[in-house]
Design a protein around this nucleic acid. Structure first.
Length: 309
DNA sequence: CCGGCGTGGCGTCAGCTGGC
DNA sequence: GCCAGCTGACGCCACGCCGG
């Protein structure tokens, strides 16, 4: 029987985890116009220490460009409700909602399975290591980004010891090749930051970046509130006053929400696949047990019959 | 070679759930 | 009660297979 300990389930069959297309492909770039910008970054590092973390950023991409880059084009039927909100219209949705009843989470089901039927199976628990360490990193950026394409932001750690011990060594923000990118859909001054963790997983974060007339990137803050999952950080601009900034902020929040949901959906699918594999393994084991029991019953019957004769 | 079909993966939305 | 996370549903795309 495979063990189910830890966050990752161990299964007989390997799950083909294809490397995912990132919404922002990393383009080769050259930093220009060196200056120093001080950032305050609080990040949740990976569980794997001493692994470099690469950060790639796309300066002011549009939602459309992100979708295009991911190879996904969506068309959704929508209608406007009375309050100016766009809502999806599907006549079957209501019926389905009535019919469908939700099931408990896979983790719950697996835990119930393991506790009730298979004492040898360890329960699935949250990865405590990932939750435990939250790093506060003071960094300086030796270079900055302009709105033109093909540039790189390099973030150097001011406290390398701290970074190393917390599993976050270097962050490289790379402006991707921006052939299809326009500055329309994403609010001005917003950057999508994509970074690869030590375990190979990719994370994204929207970062407000204001660029001075001289072409310098202004300081901004990135922090990781406790509510965010490991690896997801949130950037907070300071001093929002105008309605335009409010709109930008709400758009940024939406982007962040979508990103988190994207990651959550990915994790959910991964978990679901593991769950299905677990069930398949259990089926195989139970079939074997059933066979053995039938065989044993046969032998006992024969024995009993021969005794009576 | 090409079109149809099945399958798998992804992003997004919506609704439920559990923690605070 | 609010909020963040989880997950089913949906639509889309990519890919492989198969028959014509």
């Amino acid at each position: 029987m495979p063990g189910f300990g830890g966050k990752q389930l161990e299964m007989d069959g390997s799950i083909d985890d294809k490397s995912e297309d990132s919404p922002s492909s990393s383009g080769s770039s050259q930093p220009q116009n060196l200056s120093t910008v001080v950032h305050t970054i609080t990040a949740v590092p990976t569980a794997i220490p001493n692994q470099p973390v690469q950060v790639q950023s796309v300066i002011q991409p549009t939602q459309q460009s992100v979708i295009q880059a991911a190879g996904q084009i969506q068309t959704v039927q929508v209608e406007e409700d009375g309050e100016g909100h766009l809502v999806r219209t599907d006549p079957d949705i209501e019926k389905r909602r009535e019919i469908l009843s939700r099931r408990p989470s896979y983790r719950k089901i697996l835990n119930e399975l393991s506790s009730a039927e298979a004492p040898g199976i360890a329960k699935i628990e949250e990865d405590k290591e990932e939750e435990a360490a939250i790093t506060s990193i003071q960094t300086t950026i030796p270079s900055y980004v302009q709105t033109s394409a093909g540039q790189t932001i390099q973030i150097a750690a001011a406290n390398q010891n701290e970074l190393t011990t917390q599993g976050l060594q270097t962050i490289t923000m790379t402006n991707a090749g921006q052939g299809a990118v326009t500055a329309a859909a994403m609010p001005a001054g917003t950057t999508i930051v994509q970074y690869t963790q030590g375990d190979g997983s990719q994370q994204f974060v929207t970062v407000p970046v204001s660029i001075s007339p001289a072409g310098e990137v202004q300081a901004y803050q990135i922090r990781a509130p406790s509510s965010l999952p490991a690896g997801v950080v949130m950037a907070t601009p300071t001093g929002i006053t105008s309605p335009q900034q409010l709109a930008e902020e709400s758009a940024r929040k939406r982007e962040l929400r979508l990103m988190k949901n994207r990651v959550a959906a990915r994790e959910c699918r991964k978990k679901k696949k593991e769950y299905v594999k677990c069930l398949e393994n259990r089926v195989a084991v139970l079939e074997q047990q059933n066979k053995a029991l039938i065989e044993e019953l046969k032998q006992l019957k024969d024995l009993y019959c021969h005794k009576n004769e």
